[in-house]
Nucleic acid binder design. Structure first.
Length: 680
DNA sequence: GAGCACTGC
């Protein structure tokens, strides 16, 4: 057993945060209507929210916007759209319910259509990328927030919809944040134009509601009771200098004391850390004293193959305890039943914007209070639970209240392009709930200007015809530009494939334990011209065997992601056809492909320095070739890259070897400016 | 010389 570290409870806190200004919607002892309900009805009526149905509906009927706060398990997401529909509210149009994740939109639609005893896609449907299960009859529609945003480009007033429910608003995804502004504008405009009114309901689990309410012109806040089980929280007495060691101690302390049927979920920061900890736990578990239960240790992170992710849902054999070591994927995206204990290291790996370098940095950092509560809540889903926080209560008090919204942490080029396509009068002064910094907005406009997507005249930014075409693609602007450039180089077929490959998670799987095998098998795909062409080779080989699963396994290719690549490619190809783009293949001519890439990635180039390092042309930033690149051991004179990733070093990812001459052809003004800046 | 949190269109 590991020595050191300490975990005797310093303090116990009951998880029962009280709302500050409550308009309670669950009057104690409220009477149910005396009707004989069916089995499904009985289940619906047993939800806590049912008690509040009457007062809730009378509020929602009269309000144009509302903030609805409900803890998990309140049933708000499945019931409110049905209540509205059943009460005849919003019958002039469709009731939309947005979700940050596809799987959630699909499973919620399935559940609600079951409850309504209708076929999925009729009264109740869903729309996510690649899948549209809706029809003329659909009145309740679940969709991803990104999907509603894309629909808004075609119709900024969202005229199809009578009600928009923005769910999981506390997650503050970039799409939800843009939608806040879009629905707010649509609400006002529809009122001004005398169209049928839009109703907006923001649904959130957070306690920090003032910001939502203020933004929506003082919309009332309605509180729903949830069905969260009580969770005991233990803080450490002393700050822990080594959270990994502390996590290890906690896991084995729980393991020795608790019945083996009670599972443990540990929050860690990344793949490498989780794999190492998995190994350590398994090693220790082999040498446990007699009488101690056995242990099954399972890693969980997004890049783990799907089949291995599924293991966390299987119950451990009798007498074994399940210990899941996870990234923040288990915070929201994956819900595991039967978790009794949560061990929260209080750390997360996340992107943040570094003002001094102006770069995005991926770094291990403290979670926010809201995030810590979210993790804690994972212990109390079926029964009461226990959460070990591997930090002191004083430390917790110093955590940020909320996680900084995504919109303030990332590159805004896509968002700005979308706002322009939405015909927002002035994108520079768009009414964001949480405004990004003016610098971030300027940088995004700058990037769009370089790509030729916008015109700038004084303080007015407008979309060019090219920019409007770019907005039609569900891609980062630089990738849309690459596709739109490709007819000039007669390689649209190849560029479509490459862009699809880049916009999906890695199609190559690298099990650390079989590194040598991976390297030898992968040799046959490697192109000395870089990662883009290597990926193209893998895709061509995959298509040659018609996506054979055995082939994928033998070649460490992720079959699921590869299928997704085909879907993306088909979608992009459709858009090209709609834009009447000629689609040609360059066949074996890879030079044209690289020239095309140089013409759209010219602002992402780096040159080999005399000392063997690389420096970017744009800002002379010292950069290195990422170890995942096929060029890792090579030293080409000049490369373009898709992105910079700042971890321990500043790495270029996805590289392509190019000629310096091509770059000057691609953007003569840009390079003249850079040259002049270098002289000064 | 040595590494990649999580979503989504």
């Amino acid at each position: 057993m590991p020595q050191g570290g300490e975990l005797p409870p310093a303090k116990r806190v009951k998880l029962a945060p009280a709302p500050r200004r409550a308009m309670l919607l669950a009057p104690p002892g409220a009477k149910r209507p005396p009707l004989a309900p069916s089995a499904g009805e009985t289940q619906r009526r047993s939800l806590p929210i049912f008690q509040a149905r009457g007062p809730l509906l009378s509020q929602l009927r009269s309000l144009e916007s509302a903030i609805l706060i409900g803890e998990t398990g309140s049933g708000k997401t499945t019931q409110i759209p049905q209540y509205l529909y059943e009460a005849g509210i919003g019958r002039q149009g469709i009731i939309a319910v947005t979700q940050p994740r596809r799987v959630a939109a699909i499973s919620l639609a399935t559940r609600v259509s079951d409850e309504k005893k209708t076929e999925l896609g009729k009264l109740v449907g869903y729309t996510v990328r690649f899948e549209d299960f809706t029809s003329e009859e659909t009145r309740i529609k679940f969709l991803t927030d990104g999907m509603l945003l894309r629909e808004a480009i075609g119709d900024p007033l969202l005229r199809k919809y009578s009600v928009v429910l923005l769910d999981e608003a506390h997650e503050r995804t970039i799409h939800t944040d843009v939608l806040f502004g879009v629905v707010k504008a649509a609400l006002k405009k529809r009122k001004d134009l005398g169209k049928f009114p839009l109703k907006v309901v923001i649904m959130s689990a957070t306690m920090d509601v003032d910001q939502f309410s203020q933004y929506f012109n003082g919309a009332p806040v309605l509180y729903l009771e949830g069905r969260q089980h009580p969770i005991q929280i233990f803080y450490t007495k002393q700050p822990q200098s080594d959270y990994l060691q502390a996590a290890l101690v906690s896991v084995f302390q729980i393991h020795q004391e608790a019945p083996s049927s009670q599972d443990i979920l540990v929050f860690l920061t990344g793949q490498e850390e989780i794999e190492a900890m998995t190994k350590t736990c398994r090693d220790i578990a082999k040498h446990l004293p007699d009488g101690c239960p056995q242990m099954v240790v399972m890693p969980l992170y997004a890049s783990l193959p799907y089949s291995q992710q599924l293991r966390v849902f299987q119950a451990a054999p009798k007498g074994y305890r399940k210990v899941i070591l996870s990234t923040n994927i288990a915070e929201t995206s994956i819900t595991i039943a039967g978790i009794k204990y949560v061990v929260d290291t209080g750390m997360v790996k996340a992107k943040k914007f570094s003002p001094e370098s102006g770069l995005e940095v991926l770094a291990v950092q403290r979670v926010s209070k809201a995030q810590a509560w979210q993790r804690t809540g994972r212990a109390g889903r079926e029964d009461s639970g226990i959460c070990y926080r591997l930090y002191t209560e004083d430390e917790f008090q110093k955590f940020d209240k909320m996680t900084i919204p995504e919109i303030q942490r990332c590159n805004l080029a896509s968002v700005m392009l979308q706002l322009l396509a939405l015909r927002i009068p002035n994108v520079l002064t768009f009414d964001f709930m949480s405004k990004p910094s003016p610098d971030a907005i300027q940088a995004a406009i700058e990037q769009l200007d370089l790509l030729g997507a916008v015109d700038r005249k004084e303080d007015q930014v407008t979309l060019t015809p090219l920019g409007r075409k770019m907005a039609a693609f569900p891609l980062e602007p630089k990738f849309s530009k690459t596709i739109l450039m490709s007819p000039k180089f007669h390689c649209t077929e190849e560029i479509l494939t490459i862009v699809s490959l880049l916009s999906v998670d890695s199609i190559l799987y690298n099990p650390p334990s079989r590194r040598d095998e991976v390297q030898s098998v992968r040799k046959k795909f490697i192109s000395s011209e870089g990662d883009h062409l290597t990926l193209l080779n893998v895709y061509r080989a995959f298509k040659n065997v018609s996506g054979n699963k055995e082939w994928c396994k033998e070649n460490f290719v992720n079959n699921r992601n590869m299928t997704l690549v085909s879907d993306v490619r088909a979608q992009l190809r459709d858009i090209c056809l709609k834009l009447s783009l000629p689609i040609e293949s360059s066949r074996s001519d890879t030079r044209n492909i690289r020239r095309c890439l140089a013409h759209s990635l010219f602002m992402n180039t780096a040159e080999l320095q005399p000392d063997g390092t690389y420096a970017t042309v744009d800002s002379h930033q010292l950069v290195a070739i990422h170890p995942s690149s096929v060029l890792f051991h090579c030293k080409p004179a000049c490369v373009t890259y898709n992105e910079l990733l700042h971890t321990n070093k500043c790495y270029m990812r996805d590289l392509c070897v190019v000629d310096a001459d091509w770059l000057c052809d691609a953007a003569p003004d840009y390079f003249r400016r850079k040259l002049r800046a270098a002289k000064n």
